[in-house]
């Protein structure tokens, strides 16, 4: 069943397409059954769709979706189903008919269901309330702020950097001038499985002995990365280093579109320099073990390693233009 796998890079759209396809199949089946005079009652159709969505989210999507998100999705899908079944007066009457039949107790069977419901529903609610009040030994949930606001300035090795305006001194073109467009053109090809654009060209391959300028600085950044950072952040920069799972939370995954890809380079410079302990209170400094790298690296080394991270992941730092 390999064709059923979620394909990396396309998973978000795949999930929506699968749900859309399922709903379409469901609608077609319902239409066909109606034509054959065996239509599913609206009430059970609504309940069935809702259960299907919950099962899909719980068992189809991997890694497992945390409960908080499934609860949000469950509530929104329930609202959507309510909108569907009560969108027109006829549909609403049809939907609530089984419920009203039970409430009115129109037959012996309905009366029995009513009696059972009147016993089971309060008991279930009571049980739910009881279990939620039971003491729990689980660690409390933390609403961690992954990207806390940086300060306006930061002092590293005695020099003050204004984060909104400072530039990476190694992000330069052949003439030695700061040039983001030039360096952006030389990062790895993200869409092609993170490959170098031309391994035979020293302008693109930092490990070419003739590499100069930007590409040479990238190599130096890479060397610093593999000497210091890859144990936690991993040799693919995906946060899955050898020691990664010794920590909670695990180290940042730079290949994710939501980390360095949406940050300014100066933000990353600040984070690397100050480490976990330098985070503001809102960033939960106690929940990050990253050392303040300013104690181990020079300013130049930090700039180079930051540049390497962007080069390797194929992302561009965010800019203000």
């Amino acid at each position: 069943m390999t064709w059923l796998k979620l394909v990396e890079g396309y998973m978000p759209m795949q999930m929506i397409s699968e749900l859309a396809g399922s709903i379409l199949i469901f609608a077609l089946a319902n239409w066909a059954l109606n034509r054959a005079g065996m239509g599913i009652p609206k009430f059970w159709a609504g309940v069935g769709v809702w259960i299907y969505i919950q099962l899909y989210l719980k068992y189809r999507i991997y890694p497992p979706i945390p409960f908080s998100v499934r609860a949000i999705y469950g509530t929104v899908s329930a609202c959507g189903i309510f909108m569907w079944v009560s969108g027109s007066e006829d549909a609403w009457q049809e939907f609530k008919r089984p419920v009203m039949n039970v409430m009115d107790g129109i037959s012996g069977f309905h009366k029995a269901v009513r009696t059972v419901s009147l016993i089971v529903i309060p008991l279930a609610l009571g049980g739910f309330a009881y279990t939620s009040f039971l003491p729990s030994f689980e660690e409390p949930i933390e609403l961690r702020t992954v990207h806390p606001a940086p300060p306006a300035t930061t002092k590293v090795h005695g020099k003050t950097f204004v984060l909104q305006v400072v530039e990476n001194p190694y992000r330069v073109n052949n003439e030695g001038k700061y040039d983001q467009a030039y360096t952006d053109a030389r990062i790895v090809e993200q869409a092609m499985g993170r490959l170098m654009k031309d391994v035979n060209d020293p302008n693109y391959n930092p490990w070419d002995p003739n590499a100069e300028g930007y590409t040479k600085y990238v190599r130096e950044g890479g060397e610093i990365f593999f000497q210091n950072c890859h144990f936690c952040h991993g040799d693919n920069l995906n946060g899955r280093g050898l020691w990664a799972y010794a920590f909670n939370p695990i180290p940042a995954n730079f290949t994710d579109a939501g980390t360095i890809a949406q940050l300014q380079e100066t933000f990353v410079f600040w984070r690397v320099s100050k480490g976990g302990i330098g985070l503001p209170g809102e960033g939960f400094p106690w929940a990050s073990v990253m050392p303040p790298w300013e104690q181990h690296l020079t300013v130049d080394e930090i700039w180079k390693v930051v540049m390497f991270e962007y080069w390797h992941t194929g992302y561009y730092p965010r800019t203000w233009d």
Binding site: L6, E8, M11, P12, M15, I61, P63, P64, I65, P66, F67, V69, R144, V146, G239, R240, Y245, N248, P249, I250, A252, N253, D256, A257, G258, T259
Partner: peptide
């Protein structure tokens, strides 16, 4: 859940 997911961002929903 964090450990089961393997990181702060979910590979499908994170996007």
């Amino acid at each position: 859940e964090l450990k089961a997911m393997g990181g702060q961002q979910h590979p499908v929903l994170g996007n």
